[in-house]
Structures are given as structure tokens and as C-alpha cells.
Nucleic acid binder design. Structure first.
Lengths: 137, 137
DNA sequence: ATGCTAATGATAATGATTATCATTAACGAA
DNA sequence: TTCGTTAATGATAATCATTATCATTAGCAT
């Protein structure tokens, strides 16, 4: 039977209390001061379990690292392809006719759908401009 | 100046000629019989470059492996969360008002958007049923 | 307080992807 | 056609995020 562990709860809280979409390592560094004996393995283990139980979500693998999300209400993500920054974005309802068609055509049972808006955040755009200007000597 | 390499062309062709959404290793195994001296590194290298140049797309990292797509016309994907199988799905136009709002609110320049329909394919559903029935002895 | 075992810490192992570097091959110029 | 330049490659070591292992610790029912 599952037990109530302080570290698991801290991981959940950490994720619920940030608007960012952290990696396992970020959460580890965040909690380490409070739990001196915290192990990175514990963070990975719990994130995996919490994801399976539906208590948290995964945004997917961005820039080679999995990113997590404590907000389970339906919403989308805007993702910067340069720095990997993620913003929560309002949910939009997808055409249910399309969903039905997919389920029928592929005999595929849809559990949920994700929308990712991929692009460039302001900071990265500015940084790229800088670089270009320097090249124009 | 970029040169025309037979192996790069074969990798592109391989991707354009399959309806699946392969991993680097799958492509490697597919081409190995024709190019006895093909190296896995060459496949990885080219996929990375082709992705950057926009000649191919990445479906994302599924079950810990990056999956590629030779179809660059706008479309979506249905993804089985059990086996990782991917189906191409008709494109649907997302609400442009929402996009404008995102760009303004986050000062975020959207390049493109992805829709993933996550669920369970027929084969996996059947397999799960099997397993459950066996448990009911 | 005791016993059971889920949860953890430390760390080795795994496995996908990338970097390195010597060699090969594409291709423009002679 | 041959030659020279250098992009592309093969082989493999290195990287690094994630997972597995196992001895120890700590929730919690009794």
C-alpha cells in the first residue's frame, strides 16, 4: 500500500508552486536545501510515478530533457525552440468531429490531445538580433 | 559548400518512402544492406542536419527515442502511448485569434504548431484485454 | 513499541545521441 | 582526366539523461 512520503509531497508542491516547467534536476536543486539527504533518484522515481498516476503531466522532451507540469487542467504550451522555455497557454477545444474520424479511421482510442506552439521567445529573438548586428561590421 | 552525398539522399528517400515514423536506428538497419559501410553516426548526423534545414521533421521523443517524419506538409499525429506507434492525421487549422493572442501576451513568435492525439492503438488495446482476461481465472 | 514493506540514498548501469579524428569521396578548376 | 580542396563519412570513445540495484530507512497498521 502506498505510503505518504514527505519527499514525494515536496516534489508535488514544488511543481504546483512554479509557473515554469522544470526538469528533474531543477526540482532536485530546488528541494536539496530543505532535504539535505535528498537523492536525484528519488526525484526521478517520483516524477515517473506521479506522471503515471496522472497527478502531474509531462510536457515532453525539450532540448534533450523531460519537462514536467504541475497543472493538470487542460491547457497548451508555447515552447521556445532556442532556449526551451515553456509558457502555459489557454486551452482551446479541438474539433470533435476530427477526433471521431481519427478514432474510427485508425481504430485509435484518444485519451487526450496536446497542442504545442513552437517558436521563439522575446529574449532569444533579441539575442539573435544582437548576434546579427555584430556580424554587420 | 554542401555536397551531394548518396547516403544523405538515401536517408531522405528512406524517410519519404515509409509511412511509419522511424528512429535513427530503424533507418540505419533499413539502409545497411544497400550500404555495407554505412555508419550509425552518419544517420544521426544527417537526420540532425536535415531537421535543421527543414527537409524533414521530428515528431518528438517517444518512448525515449526521437522519431522522424519525411512528410513536411502540415499535419498532425496520433501517438500510441503504449507501443509508440505514430499515425499521420489530417491537418486542422488552429484558431488564428488564439495564435495572435499568444504572440502578443508572451511576445512569442510562433513558427508552427503541433497537435498530438495521444491514446491507445487497436493492437495494444487488444493486448491489454488479453492480459486482463488471463488475470480473471 | 514492533513488524512489515514502501520509499529512499548512493551509485553503477544503461542506452540514445554526440564528439573526435583519421580517412574517403564530391566536385570545381586546371 | 587528373588534382586539390574540404565536406562527408566510419569507427568508436565520450557524454549525459534516465533507470536499475540493493542495502538502509521510515510510514503506518497492529
Amino acid at each position: 500500500m502506498e505510503r505518504f512520503s514527505k519527499k514525494r509531497q515536496a516534489i508535488i508542491d514544488c511543481l504546483k508552486n512554479t509557473k515554469t516547467h522544470p526538469t528533474a534536476e531543477w526540482i532536485y536543486n530546488e528541494l536539496k536545501p530543505k532535504f539535505k539527504d535528498l537523492s536525484l533518484a528519488t526525484v526521478y522515481r517520483n516524477l515517473k510515478e506521479l506522471k503515471q498516476s496522472g497527478d502531474i503531466l509531462s510536457v515532453g522532451t525539450i532540448l534533450n530533457k523531460e519537462r514536467f507540469d504541475g497543472t493538470v487542467l487542460p491547457h497548451s504550451h508555447a515552447i521556445c525552440s532556442k532556449c526551451g522555455k515553456v509558457f502555459d497557454v489557454e486551452n482551446i477545444e479541438l474539433d470533435s468531429e476530427t477526433k471521431k474520424r481519427i478514432q474510427k479511421k485508425y481504430k485509435f482510442k484518444i485519451d487526450y490531445s496536446n497542442i504545442h506552439y513552437v517558436g521563439i521567445c522575446k529574449e532569444c529573438e533579441n539575442r539573435l538580433k544582437e548576434k546579427n548586428n555584430k556580424g554587420d561590421i
